[in-house]
Design a protein around this nucleic acid. Structure first.
Lengths: 264, 264
DNA sequence: CGTTAATTTGAGACCATTCAATTTCGGTGG
DNA sequence: CCACCGAAATTGAATGGTCTCAAATTAACG
């Protein structure tokens, strides 16, 4: 459970116990080329650390914020509640991602954000981020790309809950989460720390917890996954992707080589 | 059906038959204060007109584009197709909106865009838009806000398709479309030109066309709407919103008064 | 006025839900 | 170390919402 060793994130090696804004530099470096002073400017951002307990609210619908929360450790998820008490999870987020970057421009949050147990976030003043974006084009493009990838994932989720079978829905969610959790926390182990409960899977796929349970059992029985407690192992990636019709294009992890020059 | 008179869009009166980039100025003016030279720069954007027939593809999944399509007339919708042939509609778009602004940064389109009959678009070089965004902060913020509102609508759609009853889903979609179509084409008539087919409503709500038909009948029978052919009339806004649990916050039409100053 | 698209109707099957109860798991304290 | 606890996972059975398939009707358009 504990990994006290050194962990290499991008080019910056850091002690696992004290994640920093280097996570942000690493993430954005995947989208754009950050000059050394861009990196410095990011790392110089003012922020305070904040830790959240199980299901704690990082942000509430209707709230007006002046700060942005960058995940440093743990998992967070966006959700909306309906009047009958049901919950729809809208997205999951891993360290290195902002959970509410859009509120810096939109002003009012249109959804809730909840945290997993022990989630840590860097609370960064929105004005500082806005200034950074205004002054540094590379940073701005990375930030913008972040929100665009976010939207792309949402489009895929609409498809997932709208048109796929329960089996495919869950398989698809597992594919996405396995990929993203692995990227946020690299290891050569096939096993994956997976603290997502079946109720959360249900709320993310638009199913009930009961049916989610039964569907997971068929995925297990068919040898696609192994899911016990807080650990997930994908036993057969090929077949899991097939049942999910999973195509990782929507994650836009491999930036287009021929993207039009943004500012020439 | 035909409205050949003058139509006031924002501050710019224009003959209905020749929509121009003024649509874009009007739309963005709702988000930010555009200086006169900002407006001029937008209106000076190079573009070519293109008209699309029924269900014509404006953009295909996997395509790499260098241009962006701004809707001038008609309706377009984003969708993804699954291997079994089913289609999930992801969003609808009205004149004044870009259908693929995000591709300017993401490079590859992750979804298809189809048009309604007689839809007209302005095809604008992505590089010109990128330059405009780089040089003019107000334009950039408007553009960015556009993509963020887009994402907010997607979040609501995930909720709609994931957790609402068929009746509420359809009611919600009708609320959104009625609002947005009305805004794109103001008139004091309660009736609304509504060329969306039941099959499209089904594909947008994750239902079948048959069930959509039956559900629409109950909405009609209960006196909430009148929907015949290509015209929709909301007979009882209050009850329609209630059955949909519709809250227009997610459309972010009323920009936050206290949004943090973006660049100071 | 003929043709195609769109809407409507019926009936049966099935997938997913609901409700309730039971079992397992992870963590806590005696 | 074991008893205990709440949370999470699991099971069963009945209900119901939605789908499927097929056919009929109506509307739109040249």
């Amino acid at each position: 459970m504990f990994c006290l060793g050194l962990q290499v994130v991008g080019e910056v090696a850091q002690v696992n116990d004290v994640p920093t804004l280097a996570l942000l530099v690493d993430r954005w470096s995947k989208y754009v080329d950050l000059a050394p002073d861009d990196r410095d400017a990011i790392l110089a951002l003012p922020f305070t650390r904040k830790t959240f307990g199980k299901d704690a609210y990082i942000l509430r619908e209707g709230e007006q914020t002046t700060d942005c929360a960058l995940l440093l450790r743990g998992i967070a998820f966006r959700q909306k509640l309906l009047r009958n008490g049901s919950r729809q999870i809208i997205s999951f987020h891993v360290p290195g991602e902002f959970v509410d970057l859009q509120n810096n421009l939109l002003g009012v949050s249109d959804h809730n954000v909840q945290a997993f147990e022990g989630t840590e976030a860097a609370i960064i003043p929105g004005a500082a981020l806005a200034r950074l974006a205004a002054e540094r084009e590379a940073v701005r493009l990375a930030m913008w790309t972040d929100t665009l990838v976010d939207a792309s994932v949402l489009r895929e989720w609409v498809v997932n809950v709208g048109r796929r079978s329960s089996r495919a829905r869950i398989a698809h969610l597992l594919c996405e989460l396995a990929l993203r959790l692995r990227q946020a926390n690299p290891s050569d182990d096939a096993r994956l720390d997976f603290p997502v409960t079946q109720e959360q899977i249900a709320d993310a796929t638009g199913l009930t917890a009961v049916h989610t349970n039964r569907t997971l059992q068929t995925l297990r029985k068919d040898g696609l996954i192994q899911l016990t407690g807080r650990s997930l192992t994908v036993l057969d990636w090929k077949r899991l992707r097939e049942t999910a019709e999973f195509d990782d294009l929507y994650l836009h992890q491999h930036p287009a080589a021929t993207a039009p020059a943004p500012s020439r």
